[in-house]
Nucleic acid binder design. Structure first.
Ligand code: NAD
Ligand code: NAD
Lengths: 243, 243
DNA sequence: GCGACTTTGTTCCTGCGTTCACAAGCGGCT
DNA sequence: AGCCGCTTGTGAACGCAGGAACAAAGTCGC
């Protein structure tokens, strides 16, 4: 079957209308998924776009458009069947299969991630841990022994790791990244505050907490300057601050 | 002095041309800042937009436009003075003052954050820790004793905390958030996978690692399906999958 | 001191993402 | 059975961000 660049198309009984899903929508769909599963636990079987959008913190029109990407079928006048919707979103996000995770750098952050039950609970089992510290090798963290970084390529290939999480110090990050790529890992979540160089077919997402704080700082200062509380930055020259 | 919606305007000697800075640009500026400080440590005094953009992983045109928001003054034919640029970006991001941080929920993740030197190093000193667990109260983590959650409003107000970081389990997150707001905290970084309800003048940024993984999962599956490796999801009905 | 080269700052434009608004569709009520 | 009201799904408009291209400007070499 040939694939058209965009368009939707029926493929018999199981109608899976794929179109190019905007990057931003993918992130929101993951959020809807969480809200929905939480609601299902509370016994909610149907939800309107208005309610779901409120719980997810987005505009209801945006939500409906996002859901149109998964080709979901709500019922007009009623809303969406929560269980059905979860199923469709999970399929679109590729959550029908499990994605093994490897964590590299079992320090403060690595420990927290390795022990976090939220990952395996959502279909992301942690199946490999790596560090360079001899004292850590062989030690079990969260029930899984730590392997040496040198074995990354072999172990990742063997255990079919699909996502690598980097929690090493900055100087080690690029080297670790290269090892993961050598082991066939195509998706990387990077906590080290550095921009990694990778082949084109590898996707890196960076979680940079300092950047988050700085963005908050920016808005904080912006707001303070505008709300009459008085000059907060650079009180030397008030006229330059009044905004 | 009245403020025009967009435009730039000079305010005497100290020319601080503020315009509305796009959200995305703020995030990138924080990244430039990191690259620049790292370069300065290596003795680099000037950088061209091309080089800096490469190191930050963005287009050079985008970079120059971002820098135009800070009203920086590069030198044509030469590039940017790294030290001067850092100074300007820091001022725009409000990093000329320190922003005290409070961490709530000193579990796995809270411990990692409390011990992380990267925050104080970048002007974000951690000045308060809170938990509900009696066994933790009074215990020093990263040199700072843990206080009881009930004291959040008083302590935050007293220590002028500007940023609250929530690392509690999901059910506790909203309550903790309310306490922080009561203590005058206007910026919140939330690690609990839940959408918080806050007053309009409070900004929440959520770091949701499960969402990050799911986005990676989406692209992984998308890629696998397209590169001839064969159907990866739902191999039951091949005709519905071939894409 | 002057020319050529380099690099910035900005303008324009294209494309994407979000929002508005409404017609179509479905359930429930009478 | 038919109507009414509610909610979905989408077409169209709007606004914004990113990228290409260029003119201004300043430096370095000669
Ligand atoms: N801890 C936090 O809260 C936090 C917050 C934001 C960012 N980060 C970033 O996350 C990364 C890890 O932070 P951390 O606090 O866990 O640091 P950490 O020092 O506690 O742990 C780092 C771990 O990496 C290991 N390591 C060092 N070199 C390695 C190599 N070449 N290969 C494999 N492992 C190696 C070390 O043995 C150590 O166990 C750092 O880059 C840090 O900047 C951490
Ligand atoms: N650990 C991770 O790697 C990770 C990853 C992603 C998200 N998260 C999220 O971060 C949050 C914390 O994760 P964690 O692994 O550190 O959990 P944890 O169970 O290790 O720690 C939670 C801490 O919060 C405290 N707490 C509970 N109720 C509280 C309340 N009402 N007020 C103040 N403190 C309270 C507990 O005493 C405990 O110390 C959770 O919401 C989790 O979903 C964690």
């Amino acid at each position: 079957m040939t694939v058209h660049e965009h368009g939707r198309y029926s493929t018999g009984v199981e109608d899976l209308p794929y179109r190019s899903v905007p990057e931003a929508a993918v992130g929101r769909l993951a959020v809807y998924l969480r809200v929905l599963t939480s609601m299902i636990e509370q016994g909610v079987t149907t939800m309107s776009s208005e309610v779901l959008a409120g719980a997810a913190g987005v505009n209801s029109a945006t939500l409906r458009k996002d859901l149109s990407y998964v080709g979901s079928y709500g019922t007009r006048g009623v809303g969406y069947d929560t269980a059905r919707l979860v199923e469709h979103i999970e399929r679109l996000l590729g959550l029908t299969r499990h994605h093994s995770i490897a964590v590299v750098g079992i320090g403060n952050l690595g420990h927290a991630l390795a022990n976090y039950p939220g990952f395996p609970d959502r279909g992301f089992p942690v199946t490999a841990l790596f560090d360079v510290d001899e004292d850590l090798i062989g030690v079990a963290v969260g029930g899984l022994p730590v392997d040496h970084v040198d074995s990354i390529p072999a172990v990742c290939a063997e255990r079919e790791v699909t996502i690598g999480v980097i929690c090493t110090p900055v100087p080690a990050a690029q080297g670790v990244c290269d090892l993961l790529v050598a082991g066939g890992v195509r998706c990387i979540l990077n906590f080290a505050p550095v921009v990694l160089q990778v082949p084109e077919d590898v996707e890196v997402r960076r979680v940079d907490l300092a950047v988050e704080l700085q963005i908050l700082s920016f808005h904080q200062v912006r707001r303070s300057n505008g709300n009459g509380v008085g000059p907060v930055v650079e009180p030397i020259n008030p006229i330059a601050v009044s905004r």
